[in-house]
Design a protein around this nucleic acid. Structure first.
Lengths: 125, 125
DNA sequence: CAGCGATTTACAAAACTTTTACAAGTCGAA
DNA sequence: TTCGACTTGTAAAAGTTTTGTAAATCGCTG
């Protein structure tokens, strides 16, 4: 029984990043990230929509409460700080969708040479 | 009758600090701390929630009975005195969560090989 | 009324957010 | 391909809010 997402709680987890929405805590390689409130909210918003594009407009509305009439670059600055704090994974996790917004992408193992065996294993799924 | 932890009683203990909630006594490096009532209550509240952020609002409510309409700096002053009385460990035990509250963190032995994440966490940038 | 603990006051300092001013990058049209 | 308009990246400066701190004041209680 895959009990669906009740509300907004199921923690995110991959090889390097862990995010507990309930506690409001993010771990990078098992070490707590030191995030400001806005940084956390921004990251949480992106991670909660993992794999999906979140338009600038939406981020500015939900994290900042800004309407589309407001012109600001604070979102970009925060994205930059987040990427920095995500270290080597920053650019991989947070992708820029030009003209639209940003997308958080789950970490994927950098496969080297996909062997026949792995291909088979994948195919069997 | 040694009634086990019925409610909120299990003593806290780490390398330097010991807190007996039942007796209302705290030992720092085995020496009894001299705490005023408010100081003790504040410390107890934090230690009881070890590792978790306790919002200012909650502390002000539970220790002082203040509602969110009250604006005061007495919490900060008490935190400061507590830190002072905790000596060298003050800042380590009681962490400030900017814009939110405070967190009591169990004492941890200093680590060796710093990873990227540890470096970041230390840098706080 | 003395003494102690709690609270307020008044700044100083720190942490965080936003803006500014360009640089760099993207994309479509000519 | 090159140009031009527009979008995003970035560093640093400004601005804002929150927290730290010392000292003064308040209020009990003995």
């Amino acid at each position: 029984m895959t009990e669906p997402s009740v509300h907004r709680a199921a923690p995110y987890r991959d090889e390097h990043l862990e995010l507990d929405f309930e506690r409001g805590v993010a771990l990078l390689d098992s070490i707590p990230m030191v995030l400001t409130r806005k940084e956390y909210e921004l990251l949480a918003m992106l991670v909660a929509n993992e794999g999906e594009i979140v338009p600038r407009e939406v981020l500015l509305l939900r994290v900042w409460g800004y309407g589309k009439e407001i012109r600001t670059r604070t979102l970009d600055v925060h994205i930059r700080r987040l990427r920095k704090k995500l270290g080597p994974y920053g650019d991989r996790y947070i992708q820029t969708i030009f003209g639209t917004g940003y997308r958080f992408q789950r970490y994927r193992e950098p496969r080297s040479a996909p062997s026949f065996a792995t291909a088979l294993a994948a195919a069997r799924t």
